[in-house]
Design a protein around this nucleic acid. Structure first.
Lengths: 340, 340
DNA sequence: CGAGAAAATGAAAGCGTATTCTATCGAAGG
DNA sequence: CCTTCGATAGAATACGCTTTCATTTTCTCG
């Protein structure tokens, strides 16, 4: 079978030095003469030695591991929004740059976070609205660096990366208003106070108010954030009775489903109804018609989270613990002035 | 600051037993009287003790960690195909079920795999065509269980999960043939011998051959597997000169870009040109027109990979080390008989 | 050339767990 | 009542590394 693991001892023996010296060479600590260094390095190369992370972690109480914690849907399923891939790859790319590995973990409503302590995780990135406040608090109490993304918390002592959701809601709505729309429906996921949809909804209201257009609660459609949710909402939104001429969907997924649903009903976008999405998912550009949307840079969001994490790991004081990323309206073909 | 870590010693002291007994209680090993067990469990609960994975790993030379290894694009970027999310979540969901954690790692063309040994990884899932054969071989030599997904290797001793790509290529093409198309273009990513596109291409050829339609190399368009790649191919494919009436795109991403590109050229799908995609990405259903495509279950692919991995970890002999998942044609609205 | 300083190296002690081996205790058997 | 055995509990050790501290070697300069 495979020979037993090569240890620092084997290296020391081969290089005819002590294990402490080998350790020093590896970590660049202490003082080592160039000649010894060379000998050791050669021995390492020859034996193809790789220091055991477990042993090192045991000593240092670190792990070079950070976890991306994503809330689970029903039945232990992870969110199926491919959006998450961009987030995760942004995180992985940055983490790799600072020699951290990323472990992906779905967390259910009644699971324990014991693995965090078991694994000596160096940090956590919580994605999405976390209701499990007791758990989160216990993490913070343990002194494990945490970053919250799109979270509900409003505590300035928390490290957070968020999007200027209110502004996003505002500019999307404003775009439709400036085209001349007044009966603008809002297609949103669940409106949880403090959550992303909630903030966007606030921006929607602000835009309406500024334009002197009355806010009508009956134009707010709360549906699951998915293409299917959007598709299903189409029939209700498209009903002539509402007189709706534009819809602001708070995710591209929902917007795409909506457009499809409207299309299947014979309602043409943007001629009959204008649609604005949110995210600027890659597919938005390739829709027919191409989707006007509010752009956010998800990969950048992931990178920012890692930056906030490493700032904590390295005890860098940060001017602002909460980073709010910008949004941008991307006008395409799914919006047009209302037809008379 | 936070009190120093709770160890098994503290538990032992509180429960007034030895650490060995505590260890036995935790792992269900040895023989422990019910009363002692209760005492220990209470102490664990009281101290909120979580055993150190590092220490355990050091002892056991395990880590309960598996890595999903994804080849990097240029500049350390991870693949941006959201497709990967479904794969990764399939893996995570299954891994969680068997108490394994998933670490995501992008691997570049000249990076070393040292982290695999450093972290004592229990297993690896290689995704995509891996050219780094030396590295892979060194992993196998180390005895680290590996599973290859969509790989180039054709060695039956390797654990692999693949798709019946040849059949996928066949049924997609056959569908178009049966509608009456003859000049069927193939829009593919890079054709690497043994790779997924290559197999699908073989299926395409077989279908043509069976139908007595001559294979024309000039109808094969090798473009990057992306929406942009598809979009760019549109002008060449749509040129009247080719007389192309149908296109089989080997990914939904490319198909969607293609449809958009054709649309922008005033070419209507499926009236002027039929399009078939591959994957059955969620978005395929919500396209306008909804995309006919060859369906594969990516989440299942991830689950299967974990199954193959755990089979190795538990030394279960497996009848077949290579699992080939099926494909299925999903007819939708992007295909129709050719117009005269 | 020798004393003291600086540089290089090595010995040893943990880090927190699993595990083997020994010791103890109570009960069953003679 | 003593022996023997099974059931439990505990002491000791190893896992591979980092790190402090002491020790040895080399260098510098009076």
């Amino acid at each position: 079978m495979s020979a037993s693991r090569v240890t620092i001892k084997d290296v020391a023996k081969l290089a005819q030095v002590s294990i402490a010296t080998v350790s020093n060479v590896i970590n660049g600590t202490g003082r080592v003469s160039p000649e010894t260094q060379r000998k050791v390095e050669q021995a390492i190369g020859q034996l193809d030695f790789a220091p055991s992370a477990s042993a090192r972690n045991l000593k240092d109480k670190k792990s070079s591991l950070i976890a991306v914690v994503v809330p689970l849907l029903e039945k232990g399923r992870l969110q199926d929004n491919p959006f998450y891939w961009h987030l995760v790859r942004g995180i992985e790319e940055s983490a790799r740059g600072v020699k951290l590995h990323v472990i992906l973990v779905g967390i259910g409503p009644d699971e324990t976070f014991s693995f965090v302590r078991e694994q000596h995780l160096d940090g956590l990135i919580f994605v999405g609205a976390f209701a499990r406040t007791e758990l989160v608090e216990s993490m913070l109490r343990l002194g494990v660096p945490c970053v919250f993304m799109d979270s509900l918390v409003d505590d300035p002592s928390f490290y957070q990366v968020a999007l200027d959701d209110e502004l996003g809601g505002y500019i999307g709505t404003k775009h439709l208003l400036s085209l001349g729309h007044e009966r603008i429906a809002l297609l949103t996921g669940v409106l949880l106070e403090g959550g992303v949809n909630y903030c966007r909804w606030q921006g929607y209201r602000r835009a309406l108010e500024e334009a002197g257009v009355p806010y009508r609660p009956e134009l707010v459609y709360e549906e699951p954030t998915s293409s299917l949710g959007g598709y299903r909402a189409a029939s209700r939104i498209g009903a002539k009775t509402g007189g709706i001429t534009a819809v602001f969907a708070l995710s591209d997924m929902a917007a795409i489903g909506l457009v499809k649903g409207l299309h299947d009903l014979g309602i043409v976008v943007p001629r009959d109804i204008s649609v604005v999405g949110f995210d600027d998912d890659e597919r938005a550009r390739y829709c027919i018609p191409a989707l006007t949307t509010v752009r956010q840079d998800i990969v950048e969001k992931g990178r920012t989270a890692v930056r906030l994490l490493t700032a904590q790991l390295e005890r860098e004081p940060l001017a602002e613990r909460r980073v709010t990323l910008g949004v941008e309206l991307v006008p395409r073909q799914s919006t047009a002035p209302p037809s008379r």
